[in-house]
Write a protein that binds this DNA or RNA. Structure first.
Length: 405
DNA sequence: AGACGAGGCGTTCGTTACGC
DNA sequence: GCGTAACGAACGCCTCGTCT
């Protein structure tokens, strides 16, 4: 299995022992004699718990609560071997699998590695919901989460770190920000850039695209205004450089894209690929450098952030270079439609992919789309000699906004 | 070499109860 | 009747280790 050799450092030894421990309702007394509380908690499956008498079940819930309260939030913890393995999976990943028609379907491979360096993502507030960290530190909620984990996970280790994360993020009115799927990013880099070329990510975020780019022979420049994210991105770079042979190179700049991009040389990049923040839909930090705080109204944000960044992207791209933008309309703001219109003014629109996001299991049996989709716009900078003819072609061909999918 | 089992990952929204 | 809050509920994909 993926982490049998210690993908999550904490689970390794316990996992091996768990084969001896997990069996029945007698696990409690047997386990206590040789493995201790930790092994009982981490090796218990929901089905075993369900077979226990009522009093014993409550005892386990309380034991789980005390264990996790003492241990703290179940952040990803990858050891060196697990990181090396995950990076090798990404190196081997066949990018042709990611494209299905006009859809980009990345797998979850590599996400734990990227997320490992950004524990702050579990604390990011989102409108109308609580963060998993906030839920975790509420005693009453943590007990409910533990009970829910035991009830809903009959075949799994119900109270290990992985399952606790799963239950915490699916708890009522709780959500966390998502990283860009590493495999999807790799597929796009592979298709729209070549060996040794320079690529720019003007909102580097949680490193999904950085990690993808490192698996290819490219030179990645990432701009990110949030201090915690920059720290995480640089830690990832440093650690991977120690652990594996990396085909790519990368540079991380702690800056605001709208301020820093004007300092870059014209025509110096082959690809600009990013996923900008969705205005104030996800407040990554309270630093003043955050674009939603610098430009507190939607109109000012468009004029002060999104538009200048796309204009600069056009300038720094070499003729024929591509600008790939993942952005979506969110409640109240048609950001994708707006980005598409700005993009069309400065580039040729080449294609719109649909990026697969989360699954919606409750729609599994219906005929509805099971995945949320977000648009990925691909624009191309005109080649100078042919620009007049291309512009004529473009104006003839009206393309409807692709923001709503 | 291929089949198979197993674990880890991601991820809201429909339904119901209740107050007004 | 309407709005709001609380609550309940799964599986496809990826990869490795083991077995045949």
């Amino acid at each position: 299995m993926r982490n049998s050799a210690g993908r999550f450092s904490f689970g390794t030894s316990v996992r091996k022992r768990s084969r001896n421990v997990r069996t029945s309702s007698s696990a409690t007394s047997q386990g206590a004699s040789f493995c201790g509380r930790e092994a009982i908690i981490l090796s218990l499956r929901g089905a075993d718990w369900a077979k226990m008498p009522e009093g014993k079940r409550e005892e386990i819930v309380e034991m789980g609560f005390r264990y996790w309260r003492a241990r703290g939030f179940p952040y990803y913890r990858l050891d060196a071997d697990a990181m090396r393995k995950e990076f090798l999976f990404l190196l081997r990943y066949d990018t042709s699998k990611a494209f299905v028609g006009s859809e980009v379907r990345g797998s979850s491979t590599g996400l734990a590695l990227a997320n490992h360096f950004h524990p702050q993502m579990w604390r990011v507030p989102m409108p109308g919901v609580r963060s998993p960290v906030e839920r975790f530190f509420d005693d009453e909620v943590l007990r409910k989460v533990i009970r829910k984990g035991l009830r809903f996970s009959p075949e799994r280790y119900a109270l290990n770190a992985s399952n606790l994360r799963r239950i915490l993020q699916t708890y009522s009115r709780t959500a966390r920000v998502a990283n860009f799927r590493v495999t999807a990013a790799k597929a796009l880099y592979a298709r729209y850039s070549g060996e040794g070329e320079h690529v720019l990510d003007f909102s580097a975020g949680y490193g999904g695209r950085l990690l993808a780019c490192l698996t290819l022979p490219r030179v990645y420049s990432g701009i990110e205004p949030c201090r915690a994210q920059v720290k995480g991105l640089r830690r990832m770079l440093t650690q991977l450089l120690r652990l594996v042979v990396i085909p790519g190179r990368a540079f991380i700049e702690h800056a605001c894209a709208e301020d820093f991009m004007p300092t870059l040389a014209s025509g110096s990049y082959s690809l600009v690929f990013s996923s900008p923040p969705y205005f104030n839909n996800e407040c990554y930090s309270a630093e003043r450098t955050q674009s939603y705080l610098k430009f507190p109204t939607y109109e000012r944000w468009i004029e002060g952030f999104l538009k200048p960044v796309l204009v600069e992207a056009q300038r720094i791209l070499a003729p024929g270079g591509h600008c790939i933008l993942n952005i979506a309309n969110v409640k109240g703001f048609n950001i994708a439609d707006c980005a598409y219109e700005i993009g069309r003014r400065h580039f040729v629109h080449v294609k719109t992919y649909k990026l697969w996001l989360s699954q919606r299991p409750y729609l599994r049996t219906s005929g509805w789309q099971m995945h949320r989709l977000e648009p990925i716009f691909v624009f191309r900078k005109l080649c100078l000699r042919r620009s007049k003819r291309r512009i004529v072609t473009r104006t003839k061909k009206a393309v409807p906004p692709k923001g709503s999918l």
